[in-house]
């Protein structure tokens, strides 16, 4: 596979998913880029914007096993990872895998579960394995966690810990669709579209898991110019010096920015990264990794504001201006 074929496959997946997820092309592209970059995605948006539909459609189009966990306040870690259960027939404990043992995991409303349960995903997301009772079990490959959270409701929710947030490659914000997109959604509904039965509309599988892994590996061959490495380091470094930011982005963020930029370059049929690839994904990679000063938060400054200011201050390599 070369970058040209990569690009064609990428766009065919996006096109197929756009049949179901109407008016959210950017979100679809971001999620797919994250999947290709072997990263996890945190999707933030109010209910009813098609977040779950997006993940289900992705699972069907890329041919990955899909499972969903509805996070609730009484959800236990073993409900996620699974645990050892005594088998009376065999007379011993046997491991019952949890829903995390899948290729595509939807952690719906992840902030409704307490931190202990949320943290049960830490190892899975970072090491792609689960350890229970001293035994480490690898997760299927590819493995992708797509978590959703509602930014509006605060009662009965538990903010995700920083360590957990840092493990998400991208935080994607889903906004309301445009008027035209909404009209299309309504038209689809009138024509019998059922979001719980995607097979009815003939959503086609474009690739399989093996092909997805092949695409993930091709990203490593995308060239990154040293000046772009410096550009990424400059951007991430500026998050640590910004006056409104209490804690800047980690080196994991730098790596994440670089890998998403490579994935985007490949998706556009290029075998080299350009500054635009970095800049486009910088908000998604950085926004959930910045901890703002309380004063700045009181002033209404958001992480997106800071990232925007940082990008505005960081000169791109070989600028003509």
């Amino acid at each position: 596979m070369d970058v040209s074929e990569f690009s064609q496959t990428f766009h065919s997946i996006v096109t197929e998913m756009s049949r179901v997820v109407v008016g959210q092309d950017d979100v679809v592209e971001h999620v797919l880029i994250a999947a290709l970059a072997r990263g996890h995605v945190l999707i933030e948006g109010v209910p009813g914007l098609g977040k779950t539909l997006l993940v289900r459609a992705l699972g069907q189009v890329v041919g990955a096993d899909f499972r969903r966990i509805q996070f609730t306040p009484d959800l236990m870690p073993s409900d996620v990872t699974g645990g050892n259960v005594y088998d009376q027939g065999q007379g011993r404990f046997v491991f019952m895998p949890g829903p995390v043992f899948t290729q595509l995991l939807l952690a719906d409303e992840i902030n409704r579960a307490p931190a202990k349960t949320q943290s049960s995903l830490l190892e899975a997301m970072q090491d792609r394995s689960v350890t229970t009772d001293g035994v480490t079990r690898p997760l299927p490959s590819p493995f992708l966690v797509i978590a959703t959270q509602n930014p509006v409701e605060s009662q009965g929710t538990y903010p995700l810990p920083e360590a957990q947030l840092d493990r998400f490659l991208l935080k994607v914000q889903v906004s309301h669709p445009s008027r035209a997109a909404e009209q299309q959604i309504l038209t689809n509904y009138l024509h019998g579209f059922d979001p719980t039965d995607l097979s009815r509309i003939g959503l086609e599988q474009r690739i399989d898991a093996a092909r997805l892994i092949e695409m993930q590996q091709l990203i490593h061959s995308v060239r990154v110019d040293p000046e772009l490495v410096a550009y990424v380091a400059d951007i991430v470094g500026r998050t640590r010096a910004h006056r409104s930011v209490y804690l800047g982005a980690s080196p994991r963020a730098s790596i994440g920015l670089l890998v998403t930029a490579r994935a985007r370059a490949a998706s556009q049929g290029r075998d080299f990264v350009i500054p635009d690839d970095v800049k486009v994904f910088a908000p998604g990679v950085l926004r959930h990794r910045l901890i703002l000063h309380p004063d700045a938060e009181l002033e209404g400054t958001t992480a997106d504001d800071c990232v925007e200011a940082i990008l505005r201050a960081a000169p791109v390599p070989h600028t003509a201006a």
């Binding site: 500054p275 635009d276 791109v316």
Partner: peptide, 21 residues
């Protein structure tokens, strides 16, 4: 090319802007 476009009010050049922008 970019300076010409800037002179005609099509774009606003800045060191932080990319060609894609």
């Amino acid at each position: 090319l970019l300076r010409h476009l800037e002179g005609n009010g099509y774009i606003d050049m800045h060191p932080s802007r990319t060609n894609g922008e």
